[in-house]
């Protein structure tokens, strides 16, 4: 038995000229909570659909729990749970009916696996007679997770489960995933939210069908060499314009209320920067050194990727 739950080797898939998934390889350990982080159109959904046997890859192969996605798709369908990005349960069935329906498809009953879904289902149990279509976004998502878990899957694939869900429900949801992980379920989750990356054991930063980086969130942050300064002033719009014009600027990006700024030089003089901004008529200037987060890393990696592409084109 391999200690890996998901093994992906050189998977590619194109739609016409667009390479949705471009030669990706990855191993996910058993019981790992793995995150696919990337913006819209990065290829996350396509990869998940290949792994859940809904889509055939153009080349390469993948195994889930030692079953090949092409040849043993029937076995895979018995052991994986999949929660698509779009709510895909029957909206005109009630909460309870949906759950019973999916349980019977997998030849099991709700009672048999109640302890597994209890954690999730208890939130929506008071509404079990309500039609699924009339649930709120957060409740829909909990119902979808319950249905994906009803057959005690070994591997769980979640496609952007927290998109369109409020902040409290998102937090609850990640708590549930952590609990499921303790029950020996391998989880692969995709998300466009960078702040959720830190909750995963390991993550892949995905862009244009490729993995830019795969590691633990801590390691990815530690690899980040440059010092970041968070800069605030009264006029944020003018500040970002001025910073981008400044000759010493390596990068400047909006982060909430502040701007994350990286200087070209290694030993930066904060006073010099402050004076420069004062000369540009900024008031209430606040500059402080901050630790990088995943989003900084993502932007940095994207920047490197882009310059690599432009260099390639130049040569």
């Amino acid at each position: 038995m391999s200690k890996h739950s998901i093994i992906i080797s050189n998977i590619s898939k194109s739609y016409g000229n667009i390479k949705a998934v471009d030669d990706i390889s990855l191993n996910v350990k058993k019981g790992e909570l793995f995150g696919l982080i990337g913006s819209d159109g990065a290829g996350k959904t396509t990869l998940l659909r290949i792994l859940t046997t809904l889509l055939l890859s153009d080349s390469g192969n993948a195994q889930i729990e030692n079953f090949d996605v092409k040849n043993n798709y029937k076995n895979i369908r018995q052991i994986v749970g999949y929660m698509p990005g779009r709510f895909s349960l029957y909206e005109d069935l009630s909460v309870e009916e949906n759950l019973n329906f999916f349980a019977s498809i997998f030849n099991t009953t709700v009672a048999q696996n109640y302890d597994l879904i209890k954690d999730v289902y208890s939130y929506i149990e008071p509404f079990k007679k309500r039609r699924a279509g009339q649930l709120s976004g957060g409740m829909k998502q909990k119902l979808a997770l319950s249905c994906a878990l009803i057959h005690k899957p070994k591997v769980l694939f979640l496609d952007e489960p927290t998109t369109g869900v409020d902040a409290v429900s998102r937090k609850e949801f990640w708590g549930m995933l952590k609990n499921l992980q303790k029950k020996d379920i391998t989880i692969m989750v995709s998300t466009p939210y960078m702040d959720e990356a830190g909750l995963c054991d390991r993550i892949s930063l995905m862009q244009n069908g490729k993995f830019m980086e795969t590691d633990t969130p801590e390691n990815i942050i530690n690899k980040f060499q440059k010092q970041i300064y968070s800069i605030k002033s009264k006029n944020k719009q003018k500040l970002i314009k001025d910073l981008r014009k400044y000759k010493q600027t390596y990068s400047a990006n909006i982060f909430g209320q502040a701007i994350h700024y990286i200087d070209k030089r290694n030993n930066i003089k904060i006073d010099e920067l402050k004076n420069h901004l004062k000369s540009e008529n900024h008031i209430d200037i606040e500059i402080k050194a901050v630790k990088p987060n995943i989003e900084d890393c993502f932007i940095e990696l994207m920047k490197k990727e882009q310059s690599a592409v432009t260099n390639q084109l130049k040569n």
């Binding site: 809904l54 999949y82 779009r86 895909s88 029957y90 999916f102 498809i105 249905c147």
Partner: peptide
Amino acid sequence: TIEQINVTP
């Protein structure tokens, strides 16, 4: 909904 049905056995 066909998505969800198709991943079932």
